[in-house]
Design a protein around this nucleic acid. Structure first.
Length: 446
DNA sequence: TCTGGGGTCCTAGGACCC
DNA sequence: TCTGGGGTCCTAGGACCC
């Protein structure tokens, strides 16, 4: 194996690759409707409370950015075409994107639909060099999907990600400047590269942390590198301090995590018009519960913890959570818990957002186990087992009812006043839905 | 500029157990 | 009884990322 400069770094010099699709949602919209090409296009909420999720480079020339309120975006770019998201479509493209990455190596970790870290070390054996891999990836993504992307290479996730950002097209003085497409941070240049970056460029430094650092007089990564970790910890917490101190020295021990499992699912909705009070919130919660239940079942999970989030018109938020002794994946069970939690909250303002989240997952099989727990272990006979499970389901209903009661008790008399009414409701649901409310059979729904 | 919806992780405090 | 320390689980809130 020769080492001519044209072949770039070896796998050992650049083991981590980061790919990021350009303006992903907006680009898919343009592919699906070529008449949009060359126009300022964004995907996001178009209403008064909408936010931009993705903007074409044409739109970025006008200063439109993702996470920007749509009203502001429209002000900056009156001709902006704002399209609602079509996530089914984006998922189709995302799967193909992942397929292409997988052809290179199975050792990759996805971050959202349009971003991937890959560990290239398996390429050593095949004598593929990182630059070659990166160029091949870009070529295939472009010819097979019609999408553009930036690729970064480096010794760690930190540098690979910084490099891919650097590889992207940029807008300068309202003009679009092409990016390099592939960028490698050589180990020799790491220190200098880092020193010149603002702290905000580091992973994990958002607006709040940037403000705190600014107050400490720390604006650049080189400033950060001079502060001792204990001082930092006093202001940012132990974990953040350790992370940032390491990054500032160019150290990043994060590995590419190939088998990440989802830990929570949820559904949030900001209403075009705020809901005036509890009644309307409870009505909306039914729909939320159904969405969360579907997501759980399609992920093959049951959740022990249900959390509700309410955001008021003054933008303050409150959350309430209840953890059960068993898992649920049924919209009626989730709605019953959510209802009890929502009743424990006060409504001094109208409600602009409602969220319901499910977490503390059990494998569905573990849950069946959990529900049959405490049974006579000698009943190994299949029919007895089946009966036992169905008996335990009843225990499940009672457990749910108890959980709902527990929520009420926890939050005092105001909630308790309504308890009898709701408890009847819960029992009614349980008997009406029968055995579909819990357990493995619900897997076959949807 | 007046801030979505999908998630992740961290922190601090309290309850509970040994 | 006026009282330790560690471990674990749960809750509420905050910050961050895409």
């Amino acid at each position: 194996m020769s080492n001519s400069p044209s072949e770039g770094p070896s796998v050992d010099e650049a083991p981590i690759l980061h790919v990021d699709l350009d303006a992903f949602f907006a680009s898919v919209e343009i592919l699906d409707d070529p008449s949009l090409r060359g126009k300022p296009v964004a995907v996001g909420g178009g209403g008064e409370r909408g936010v931009i999720a993705s903007a074409s480079y044409e739109a970025r020339r006008f200063g439109v950015r993702s996470a920007m309120p749509s009203l502001i975006a429209k002000r900056r770019c009156p001709n902006l075409i704002i399209l609602p998201g079509r996530f089914d479509r984006y998922e189709v493209y995302s799967r193909q994107f992942h397929d292409i990455v997988r052809d290179l190596t199975p050792d990759y970790e996805s971050l959202g639909l349009d971003e991937v870290f890959a560990d290239l070390r398996s390429l050593r054996r095949m004598k593929v060099r990182p630059l070659e891999a990166a160029a091949g990836l870009r070529r295939r993504i472009n010819t097979e999907l019609g999408l553009l992307c930036g690729v970064g290479l480096g010794r760690s996730k930190l540098f690979a990600k910084l490099a891919s950002k650097e590889s992207k097209p940029t807008v300068r003085d309202g003009r679009l400047v092409d990016g390099a497409g592939v960028v490698w941070v050589s180990p020799a240049l790491e220190a200098q590269w880092l020193a010149e970056l603002p702290v905000r460029a580091l992973w994990g430094v958002g607006p709040a942390t940037a403000r705190k650092l600014e107050k400490l007089g720390l604006r650049w990564v080189r400033d950060l590198a001079k502060v001792d970790e204990a001082t930092l910890a006093g202001h940012l917490g132990v974990a953040m301090a350790a992370t940032l101190a390491a990054y500032a020295k160019g150290e990043d021990r994060r590995v590419v995590e190939v088998n990440r499992v989802v830990k929570s699912v949820g559904h949030d909705q900001t209403f075009a018009k705020s809901l005036p009070g509890l009644d309307e919130v409870l009505e909306a919660a039914k729909g939320h519960a159904a969405v969360v239940a579907r997501a759980l079942r399609s992920a093959g999970r049951v959740a022990r913890t249900i959390t509700v989030v309410v955001r008021y018109d003054d933008l303050t938020s409150v959350s309430r959570a209840q953890t059960l002794s068993f898992g649920v994946d049924d919209e009626y069970a989730i709605a019953a818990i959510a209802t009890a939690l929502l009743q424990s909250i006060e409504y001094p303002h109208a409600v602009r957002l409602l969220g319901i989240h499910a977490s503390s997952f059990l494998e569905r099989d573990d849950n069946a186990l959990q529900l049959t727990f405490g049974l006579d272990p000698s009943s190994s006979d299949a029919r007895e087992q089946a009966e036992a499970v169905s008996r335990e389901r009843q225990v499940g209903f009672e457990a749910l009812r108890d959980a709902v009661d527990e929520v009420r008790q926890k939050f005092g008399s105001a909630a308790l006043a309504m308890a009898s009414e709701l408890r009847d409701d819960g029992v009614h649901i349980a008997t009406q839905r029968g055995r579909h409310a819990f357990g493995p059979e619900t897997a076959k729904d949807d």
